[in-house]
Design a protein around this nucleic acid. Structure first.
Lengths: 139, 139
DNA sequence: TTGAATGCAAAAAATTTGCATATTG
DNA sequence: CAATATGCAAATTTTTTGCATTCAA
């Protein structure tokens, strides 16, 4: 927490309350779009932030490696704390449920991609789509 | 090819030249955004299609299972023929290069997701980000 | 002090929708 | 003929930008 400022400064960036509030909101929501994050920030008691500031804060926090995002659906980058990036995200096409499995579950895939293409894959950014246990049965 | 009409009809849909042109364009481009597809369609000699028709055609062809899409980056659903969905897409963060590895490379991941969450994963929709061989070395 | 960040409003993209008209089956 | 799709324009939605002002370091 306290070294957030240090990490920012190390990149010539600054610690502002806005960035702290956005980071806190991302932490509280776990998986959220910029829009939802803006709402959550507004709900923390302080005055709401302009969307532009939310976007810029998300960018900054991401460059810092504190948060990351995946593409849960067409029009929705979903942000989460970097610590959540220790999972592969799994998204249900039926109900939108977002689950996760440990990164290691993809070790073999990563190895094969590396082997075939010389590609360094970062699976933590991937969202795997499919149907959850419940939606598999439903019509 | 000729049964395209039949497949459409089977779903109460119709075969139109617009849809044929969009499908052909997707086939020619392999990986493209709606925008690029609209351009490609315009380049096929006929008159350009309004974007709305392109979007609607893509939806129709997708519901039909003839094409699919992955999320190559933030703002860009990338469409491809369904036959291309026999690969997992790999996207380079550095240069934007899009590669693919056979679906089987993800078999173990799919099995683990199934096992842990009861989830039926469809990896062909996933785009795995990372750095290609070239960009790994560059600064 | 000074460059980085904010706030605000306006501009760009990207996608969707309403509706009269044209087409397919 | 009837139902579906198109074309076009306007409305949404999502994200980005310009710029004067404020604020952290």
């Amino acid at each position: 927490m306290s070294d957030l400022g240090a990490r920012l400064r190390a990149q010539g960036k600054r610690l502002t309350t806005q960035r702290e509030r956005v980071l806190a909101a991302v932490g509280r929501l776990a998986h959220a779009t910029p829009d939802e994050i803006a709402e959550e920030v507004a709900a923390d008691g302080g005055s709401p932030l302009p969307v532009s500031t939310v976007y810029r804060s998300l960018d900054a926090l991401q460059e810092l490696g504190l948060i990351g995002h995946t593409h849960v659906d067409h029009r929705a980058p979903s942000y989460h704390l970097a610590e959540h990036a220790t999972h592969v995200h799994v998204v249900c096409r039926g109900c939108g449920y977002v689950g996760e499995v440990p990164l290691e579950a993809a070790d073999e895939l990563v190895a094969r991609i590396e082997h075939r293409l010389g590609f360094a894959a970062d699976v933590s950014h991937a969202a795997v789509h499919g149907l959850c246990a419940t939606c598999r049965e439903a019509p």
